[in-house]
Design a protein around this nucleic acid. Structure first.
Lengths: 219, 219
DNA sequence: TAAAAGATATTGAATTTTCAACAAAAGGAG
DNA sequence: CTCCTTTTGTTGAAAATTCAATATCTTTTA
């Protein structure tokens, strides 16, 4: 646990919480650490949403696999961000997505009830933590809104460009690395992988972008 | 204001808040009432997200209009639900959507700062309100997830059926009325209106559903 | 280093969507 | 009731996507 203290320290769930208090809280929340290999399922669709997860190392993805095996990636989460918090706060009986490890991953799980509902004592941290959680869930909302903005475009090219422009903006650079391989990017954009590859090729020929694997440069 | 007391009473922002306290709070939050005609813009894209809105009468929609005038409807909000709360809680500098009145509408606006940030006094309401807001924002998250689930389908038919099945489930009935006309439904599903009409016709011929305007029956 | 495995790119055919124009139906105003 | 406006449905052509099969390039591993 000690190893990950600096990550937790930077986790916005603990904004304005003293390091000393943070240690107490982790005990109080009975936070537990877990490891997953790449590809393993952390939460399965249909499970009850009980836990808030914090990514300590690696990365996790919220994915949905439909009827015919079509995979859709909803979000990618990296340290020190949270996952599952919205479902847990909504006290959902059945998760609408799978949460899987996108790399070899270490996470911390906290029982959401202990955070979301005010307790008798420790009320100071508590109110602050809930306030932090509100801010996190609100920002997660924006992430979903961005995904909707991107995938609401009608063509593969438009979706791809909307995504890349946003990434460039977030990286504050024309060159940036995305967290997806081609198949994953297609699953995020909700398009066919081969069509996506073809579109990337065209954009390259048109000198709109350069790329090598996950690293893109907009020209 | 008095007229809408019963609506506010049922608004989950005020869960576990006594009616007496509710009155005080509205004053304290300097809540103000506004009216809009159908089609008028309540918040414009790009504005700073300062206010949390509560729909008292009518309905509002979060919409995005892209580059070429393509409209996309993100959500439809009816009394006594909130809108803009996620953007306000995330303290967004620039709204990513327009919020427009979908009918002749009355709303209440509250300065989000006054809700989201703990104040010195009145701490009891406050912590409860923040906790309520957390639950609301988390549920809004689910609504966005549902939209993503629906629109991630690859064909118009699949999107339509996913949407209708969800509506039937929520209405707990095979017959239900949706809040959209054909054009709006197309804008929500992110598909072409004429293609949507054609698909509805096919489904009717196949005896999968019946419909008249916004009222559908799944067979 | 070579072979194998995995990821990315390419291609053409089939399917689906979009687009535009128009027809039909429903609702509202006078 | 009739005219007018709005909404919904229909159609065919053009454009884009998906699908499947194969080729090429990278990385891993033996």
């Amino acid at each position: 646990m000690k190893n990950y203290f600096s990550i937790l320290h930077n986790c916005s769930l603990f904004n304005r919480i003293e390091d000393k208090e943070l240690c107490e809280m982790l005990g109080c929340f009975s936070a537990k650490e877990y490891s997953y290999k790449k590809g393993e399922t952390i939460f399965a669709e249909g499970n009850k949403a009980k836990y808030i997860g914090i990514v300590l190392k690696g990365s996790v993805q919220a994915v949905r696999v439909d009827y015919y095996g079509n995979r859709s990636i909803v979000t990618n989460i990296e340290p020190p961000q949270l996952f599952g918090e919205a479902f847990a706060c909504a006290e959902l009986k059945s998760l609408p997505v799978d949460v899987v490890a996108a790399d070899d991953t270490e996470i911390l799980l906290i029982d959401a009830q202990l955070i979301a509902h005010p307790c008798k004592n420790a009320c100071h941290f508590h109110c602050q933590t809930i306030s932090n959680l509100l801010s996190i869930v609100a920002k997660k909302n924006l992430v979903l809104n961005q995904k909707i903005e991107i995938t609401s475009k009608r063509t593969t090219r438009e979706k791809l460009m909307a995504y890349l422009l946003l990434q460039a903006k977030e990286a504050k650079s024309r060159t940036f690395t995305i967290p997806y391989d081609r198949q994953e990017l297609a699953d995020y954009l909700e398009v066919d992988r081969s069509g996506l590859s073809a579109e990337i090729s065209k954009l390259r020929k048109e000198k709109v972008l350069e790329c090598r694997r996950g690293t893109f440069t907009l020209l």
